[in-house]
């Protein structure tokens, strides 16, 4: 597993405590951080919601599976699902290989775009990782 200083943590996304990220501006993509994919190990299955599903902040929007674990995905801010990344459903390894790029999970239309700025920036997230590990 990666050490904290080996993690890829871009500064143009916002992070949630449960290790999801969301783009800072539209289109608002959601994925999981490098830390999360590294902890989970090689992913084998990705379950994502239907397009148009309306979710509240903290709602479960899907699951990520490795051979020996299942992890729930929680939406960092409220919104409506506008797209899901079908490519990761066919090839879950994309989440491991490129968690912020090809490995994005869903796109949402936030109920309130200002909610994004309430999430952690990269510095806050790094601190969160240090404190919790």
């Amino acid at each position: 597993m990666k050490e904290l200083d080996e993690l890829l943590l871009p500064d143009d996304v916002r992070y949630a405590e449960d290790h999801e990220w969301i783009s800072e501006r539209a289109p608002y993509r959601v994925g999981v951080s490098d830390f999360a994919q590294d902890q989970l190990g090689d992913l084998t299955f990705v379950e994502l919601p239907d397009v148009d599903k309306v979710l509240a902040q903290g709602d479960e929007f899907g699951t990520l599976e490795s051979t020996k674990s299942v992890s729930s995905l929680y939406l960092p801010i409220a919104g409506r699902v506008t797209a899901v990344n079908e490519a990761v459903q066919d090839d879950p390894g994309r989440v491991n290989g490129d968690p912020y790029g090809d490995g994005w999970l869903i796109e949402i239309e936030p109920a309130n775009p200002a909610d994004v700025s309430g999430l952690m920036d990269v510095e806050a997230y790094k601190k969160h990782l240090e404190e919790t590990n």
Binding site: T44, F45, E65, S66, T67, K68, S69, V70
Partner: peptide, 14 residues
């Protein structure tokens, strides 16, 4: 053994 994430020892209550 595969697709074990369906099973109780991994997914427990679900």
């Amino acid at each position: 053994l595969t697709l074990s994430t369906r099973e109780q020892h991994i997914r427990r209550a679900k």
